[in-house]
Amino acid sequence: MMSEDKLLEIKDLTVEYRTVDGVVHAVTDLNISIGKGQTLGLVGETGAGKTTTVKSIMRILPDPPAKIVSGEILFEGEDLLKKPESHMREIRGEKISMIFQDPMTSLNPTIPVLDQISEAIVLHNKITKQEAEQRAGDMLELVGIRRERGSDYPHQFSGGMKQRVVIAMALACNPQLLIADEPTTALDVTIQAQVLELMKEIIRTRDTSVIMITHDLGIVAEICDYVAIMYAGEVVEYGTLRQVFENPKHPYTVGLFGCIPDLYAEDDALIPIKGLMPDPVNLPEGCRFHPRCNQVCEKCSRERPHMVEIEPGHFVNCHLMVPETEQGGEQDV
């Protein structure tokens, strides 16, 4: 979907969970890519398949029940899905690392934080323990924590500080790709602002590519270059930040914006999306969004829509869209 230097490219990824209740279609025919130094926001509600997607990249999905049915995940041109586990261990933490949502549970409570950071450094580099600790101390300072506090245990830090430790750990080996799964959801707004500011600064200075999972469109506006909106395991809209925010086209994307109160508008009536998320075991026929869509037509319940490029780089997965080439530019739907 993107030109230039692609660092990561996911092609037609389909992931299922095979459970006793049936097959959960977590991710279906997903295509996304991310270039060097870019930040991609992956947005969607609970059960949209965001976390499953990034866990497939890291190859940390529990199998069984998870099964990557088809697709390719090309990282620097090589398919991660074909790599042996030993090779993946070298990639995780060194080339691709991940920040999880809850800093309270992603640190080991029995090990001082400096040791937890240097563990990853020793694992991936041929250096002595002292050198690793030195570098771990540098990382703590980078995220704004005094070096001396490295000997403290996680419970001695506040939530925001713990998340900084997790960020320091994720960046310790200078990865090319950082996956952040709702990194600030568990934090208070003023602390969230501190952590986001820190992440922005680090992304800019280190030229790290980032996949940012979030349900908060405000965070996306703040930090991302590209946005992919997910619904029920599919990307329904994809484009640059400007394209998706200023010209949202998919009825679900439009609906999402209608659901959030606008701080800067006098009249901020909420227009909720009717209905509920579909059962992933029993997804609707045709377009997965059609039972909740306010612009549904007869075709939607029969046929699955395809991604349509409505303007260069702006893709929408909806029957209402007509490709730019057939339309000759502007269109009205």
């Binding site: 602002a193 405000g218 400007r242 959030i260």
Partner: peptide
């Protein structure tokens, strides 16, 4: 003032 300025706003 700080609390208000810390809210990420989904507008460009």
């Amino acid at each position: 003032q700080a609390l208000l300025s810390a809210i990420p706003v989904p507008r460009l």
